[in-house]
């Protein structure tokens, strides 16, 4: 199974940016953990992060072209603004999961609307940095049970 884990703006600052909300773990340590978990079950997990909306759109288009099996996307602030990411995800026919480290619905009202939630299969939020590895683990398990 090929999995893209796409991260949006400011996620590169994890560990230093508002740790009381986002925790102390860095994106690098999260990605290493997930890649290792994926490899154990023979899955290829690719982690990416960009502060640029267009680059995220291109990665999703690339996932369509490469017939990637699943996208886990933490679009961060673009979640609440980007129709372009919404449209790109709509064209991706694999399994789609929206992920957030904190729970946006418990924060400022401008984070209560997600353009991504209606076009994904599942949403995971507020489980901290562990959310990533829980999702990878579940995807690996689901793959096993479908075989």
């Amino acid at each position: 199974m090929n999995i893209y884990v796409i991260n949006g703006p400011n996620i590169n600052l994890l560990g230093t940016r508002e740790p009381e909300i986002y925790g102390h773990e860095t994106l690098d340590s999260i990605s290493k953990d997930c890649i290792k978990k994926g490899l154990k079950d023979g899955h290829d997990v690719k982690f990416m992060q960009s502060n640029y909306e267009g680059e995220i759109v291109e990665w999703i288009q690339n996932a369509i072209k490469e017939k990637i099996d699943a996208i886990v996307i933490n679009a961060a602030a673009y979640t609440h603004t980007s129709i372009a990411i919404h449209d790109a995800l709509k064209s991706f026919s694999g399994f789609k999961i929206e992920l957030h480290i904190s729970n946006p619905h418990l924060r400022e009202s401008f984070r209560h609307v997600s353009y991504i939630s209606p076009v994904v299969d599942a949403v995971v939020a507020g489980l901290g940095a562990n959310g990533y590895s829980h999702v990878i683990e579940l995807l690996a398990d689901l793959q096993k049970s479908y075989k």
Partner: peptide, 9 residues
């Protein structure tokens, strides 16, 4: 306080 959220699986 925090509430985690899981939907759609």
């Amino acid at each position: 306080g925090n509430v985690g959220f899981v939907s759609g699986f």
